[in-house]
Amino acid sequence: MSVLVYINSENGKVAKNALEVITYGKKIGDVVVVTNGSTDNATLESLGAYGASKVLVDRAFEGADAQQVTRLVAKAAESTGATTIIFSNDLIGKAVAPRLSVRLKAGLVAGAIDTPDADGNIKVNVFSGKAFGNVKVNSEMRIIALLPNSFQPEEVGGTASVEEFNGEAGTAAVTVKATKKPEGSIPLPEAELVVSAGRGLKGPENWGIVETLAQELGAATACSRPVSDIGWRPHHEHVGQTGVAIRPNLYIAAGISGAIQHLAGVNGSKTIVVINTDEEAPFFKAADYGIVGDAFEVLPRLTEAVKKFKAAN
């Protein structure tokens, strides 16, 4: 069975979640990747290492305009005859997959966290991570949007053949005026390690100890909702039921009480460390490791311990 996988490759770089979707696709069938832009052939060929057998690349447009990408993927589906199409459920997948679902009349499973079971049902996160649902697709074609960080890339060896492809993507109706990407920061939804802090940190001037630990670990920073509401931290760092839902390997929460709405966005994390002065803080019930202590002392101490560990390993 042929599986079509869309990946975004900007500035010649392929992100980790692109490798995740290729690995995922390989578990279902023979993977053809479709992408666009100017990423060089050698990089695209190297996707074979993760299981892609062929890469179709449309050199006619850059970027990820949802209408253009929808037309491109629809065209690639037609030419490959693929009946399963896979996206990462990142910000691009969330804009493109719904459009494509309508265009191809293909049932969309958004937020998948596992491969289809024996009956073809696919597990997804629902209720902001408080439960899972199993989705059945009734249409002949299906689109699966995989939750980032729910599948690790696996190298299987091999190189992919690269073919130029005319996706007839047309023009973009949404024009981009400016793009801002802070240098050096790790996008939160993709981060494997996250250091997060809440109102217990008392003020924005105290975030240095959070950022230093994050830098030492190579982690992204996050915060609770009140912290972003009062403007101590930017909105995109707000995690929880009404913020970003994340599932990193490690989530360190300092000075966050662990309200149900906060937990909803982070309880998919593989390991949770909670630092709180109040031993009764509800967050300890959801934690793997708990430290009753003052974040102002514990965070710098943890940073030192990480430094020591890195020097020794």
Binding site: S101, K105, A106, G107, L108, V109, N121, K123, V126, K130, A131, F132, G133, N134, V135, K136, V137, N138, S139, N267, V274, F284, K285, A286, A287, D288, Y289, G290
Partner: peptide, 16 residues
């Protein structure tokens, strides 16, 4: 085109 056939709750966490 799609429908939920069943739901599950996450396994309870081991003690902290």
């Amino acid at each position: 085109l799609t429908g939920f056939v069943s739901y599950e709750l996450p396994a309870p966490k081991a003690a902290v």
